[in-house]
Amino acid sequence: MNPRILAVTTGRILRQLRHDRRTVALLLVVPALLLTLVYYMYADQPAPPGGVSTFDRIALVMLGFFPFVIMFLVTSIAMLRERTNGTLERLLTTPLAKADLLFGYGIAFGLAGAVQATVASALAYWVFDLNTAGGSELVIMIAALNAVLAVALGLFCSAFARTEFQAVQFMPVVVAPQLLLCGLFVPRDEMAGWLQAVSDVLPLSYAVEALQEVGAHAEPTGTMWRDLTVVVGATVLALVLAAATLRRRSG
């Protein structure tokens, strides 16, 4: 890996994003609109006695989930384009190392995810009075880590798609089970044993648990740090698998 090549590659990816104003606008506006929807859905629901309000519970998880799902999609498509346009093959004939490209995507879209999470969090905290015991900066940090995890999964999954239609189909495959089993709909310890086992190997479960820790505790807890270690570990694993799909030689 070469710091200069990594930096110009990250810059190139961000520049591509910047030229696509509509995508940038959608990245920033859509989470805000969805949060607004959730806010009004639960506005008249009484909070359970002594518990967190439903909006607080759902919005907190959503702040981590938006960057995850959106950066997964954006990365899958961007990487698929690199493969189908021939730019990937060309890049691999230059001094660029595979890690320069993978980390370039991770940093660029991780930053985009962080900005997205910051905008959504600002709305949630300031307009909709989201309450968390821990600080909003922890929420944004977890959201950014989620974005990087999603980038890594997207880089890996794009190798199995030949077309953009196929790439989009990987979203329900990769994202939906993680959302269903992350503990938002049914607490993880109330699920059937085999569902818990599946949930245990899905990285989003840990990201959601980390967010819930921030929601319930004023100070960062050991559980939160352990969860984030798992998320980072899953990211590294996905990046290694993604690197294995980048072949300099093909038939």
Binding site: R4, I5, R12, R15, G86, T87, L91, P95
Partner: peptide
């Protein structure tokens, strides 16, 4: 088939590949 980034300008493409080298 031209393998350049359609969503970058000609100059940005050339500068990126220049920087790689």
């Amino acid at each position: 088939a031209p393998s350049v980034y359609a969503d970058l300008t000609v100059r940005e493409n050339a500068r990126y590949f220049a920087a790689l080298h």
